[in-house]
Nucleic acid binder design. Structure first.
Length: 292
DNA sequence: TACCAGGTAAAAA
DNA sequence: TTTTTACATGGT
């Protein structure tokens, strides 16, 4: 199946950046492979570029999935509904940001198919390093998840809801984090919490809803908004990585305070999250900051 | 070895 | 109301 996405869009660059963010999507050159549960069937989805056709990608799956379901899944993961042009018009007003954006023309974020996975990822990444958190998730996934060829399907909420605290502790979670995850998994399982509903909420509504969950503070809520929902204006201003990278490219080179981040990003509404994503990408790809 | 790493809730002041 | 503390693993 061929999919034509809103241009400008550089699929290869976007995949390179995603891979540079961590080992989760490690692997094949400029393709995207991920496991998805489609109509309950564990399915491997593969997305590859179409040579000479900017913005077009080829989508296949194994086993063969319903085309409209498959299309919906890929459009979600690749954030198809987000046009870049309005963001570029805004970015041109800041000389330093403008230079970065030119180097990363066509870059879009992508997001996991599952918001439950995103939420659990946020919990694991609280306080400890991304590398440490990745180690913990790997243990969880390989114990409670489902293997689909060379990929893993993230554990279903029902499975984690039934896991015992001592099991979760054995996989590197703290007591508190184990409880957050179990409580969340239970709420999703019994229908008390519906991640799908977040998709139609305003940023503010979604943020408040997530923060109503035990274990999810402001950082986690904004992190889920920007990474899990790809909301272009959301960003955790107190995040260590954000504070460093905004300071590096838009400040004096040193890590800023959360307030400093807020001030630097204020003129970049409604694309503060997308700005942060571009700067993180620039940092990962070793793109030097420009003068002044 | 010690310390920091893309925080949070509960306890203490 | 604001400040302090415990907490899990991985890298340096």
């Amino acid at each position: 199946m061929l999919l034509s996405l809103d241009r400008p869009y550089d699929f290869g660059l976007s995949m390179r950046v995603i891979r540079s963010f961590g080992p989760d999507r490690a692997g094949q050159a400029d393709r995207l492979r991920f496991a998805a549960r489609i109509h309950g069937v564990p399915t491997l989805v593969e997305v590859s570029p179409v040579p000479g056709k900017a913005g077009a990608v080829r989508v296949s799956s194994s086993p063969r999935a319903n085309p409209s379901q498959l299309r919906r899944a890929v459009e979600w993961v690749l954030v198809a509904e987000l046009p870049l042009r309005p963001f570029y018009r805004l970015a041109r007003k800041d000389p330093r940001l403008s230079a970065i954006v030119r180097r990363l023309h066509g870059l879009k974020p992508s997001r996991p198919l599952s918001l439950f996975e995103m939420a659990v990822t946020a919990i694991t990444e609280q306080q400890i390093s991304l590398a440490a958190a990745h180690g913990v998730r790997t243990c969880l996934v390989e114990r409670f998840g489902t293997r689909v060829q060379d990929q893993w399907l993230f554990p279903e909420p029902e499975v984690l809801a039934k896991a015992t605290t001592s099991q979760l502790l054995a996989y590197g979670l703290s007591h508190m984090k184990a409880e957050y995850i179990r409580k969340l998994a239970a709420k999703v399982t019994d229908g008390t919490f519906d991640f799908e509903a977040l998709k139609t909420m305003s940023d503010e509504q979604a943020r408040e809803t997530i923060m109503g969950l035990k274990g999810f503070g402001r950082w986690s809520a904004d992190y889920i908004l920007v990474r899990g929902l790809a909301r272009p204006d959301s960003v955790p201003e107190d995040d260590l990585g954000i504070r460093s990278v905004i300071g590096e490219y838009l400040g004096q080179g040193k890590r800023l305070s959360a307030l400093g981040v807020a001030r630097k990003l204020e003129p970049l509404r409604p694309y503060r999250g997308l700005v942060a994503f571009y700067l993180l990408a620039a940092h990962r790809l070793n793109i030097a900051r420009q003068g002044i």
